[in-house]
Design a protein around this nucleic acid. Sequence first.
DNA 1: ACATATCGGACACGATTTGTCCTATATCGG
DNA 2: CCGATATAGGACAAATCGTGTCCGATATGT
Lengths: 158, 158
Amino acid sequence: MRLTRSGDYAVRCLLYLALDPGRGVVARKEIAEVMNIPAQYLGKVAQTLAKAGLIGIRQGARGGYELARTAGEISLLQVVEAVDGEIFLNDCLHQLDICERRPVCAVHRVWGRARKQLRDMLGGISLAALVEEESRTAGKVCGECPATRGQTLEGKGE
Amino acid sequence: MRLTRSGDYAVRCLLYLALDPGRGVVARKEIAEVMNIPAQYLGKVAQTLAKAGLIGIRQGARGGYELARTAGEISLLQVVEAVDGEIFLNDCLHQLDICERRPVCAVHRVWGRARKQLRDMLGGISLAALVEEESRTAGKVCGECPATRGQTLEGKGE
DNA sequence: ACATATCGGACACGATTTGTCCTATATCGG
DNA sequence: CCGATATAGGACAAATCGTGTCCGATATGT
Ligand code: FES
Ligand code: FES
């Protein structure tokens, strides 16, 4: 029950592209270095993102990637599902022949609700909102998330 | 981003045990047959569930499984996490050394919120609630979930 | 034309998932 | 106590998936 690395990379990549909108095409190599993504692997992910219509790709010299839409029009859900596939949580929700219990089963109905709730939340968050939140909290340690709890920013200047 | 088969099996197994509370120990073979679970595999899942304190196991002749607590005291979240591990969604939430972005990153904060929302929902649903919902909707086709949408119960008597 | 940079398929490798098999061990009933 | 029953628990197997690299082909800017 976790996001794959590919999905994580996709989000990071898109987030970087959303950082300064007017910039145009950004080289894959730059994105990969700044965002700590294996460059070749990012290529694969980018192809998927391009097929989903989230980024545009320019080949050849001075090539690279750019957002295909504005950062406000791309939701986290779109990014994740483009790369990892549609979120279903429970197999019984789309693998219709997998289970005999369907006519009587309350379980997948619960998963259906959970799924909707999760997708609604991710769908409601745009890249623009992420960028805005990052800049708003820049330099502050986030107290609500376990990752930064109790840390300081000493020596984290990089 | 999906529940594993093991998790699905665990839910089915516990749900079956919750169906009639006063029954005592139920043979693994029976559970496996009724719920369409490979019997040996169910054994593995059951051991995990037992370690988590969700079921009790009786070995030997007339052995089998039974709920270790009442159906109202076991939540879907407990079942799923016992088998599939704690739900994290994003690696950055628990793999603290995986990512350099942590001090500035808004992404994992969003995942943190999504995670809490999902776990809260699953944690709020008990086996008893599931059983009640199943009996309440017995014989009716569920319109809200994709699995049964547009179907009828004709020929689904089994 | 040449240098640059992505495409896209093939491939490698480890981890995870999903099972099965087999022997040991525990329990019940007589 | 004996024998039948039924799970424990480790080993093992196969398939799938996730993650990443390599390389020739292709597209683009100068
Ligand atoms: S339809 Fe398969 S568990 Fe509900
Ligand atoms: S901390 Fe890794 S992406 Fe946010």
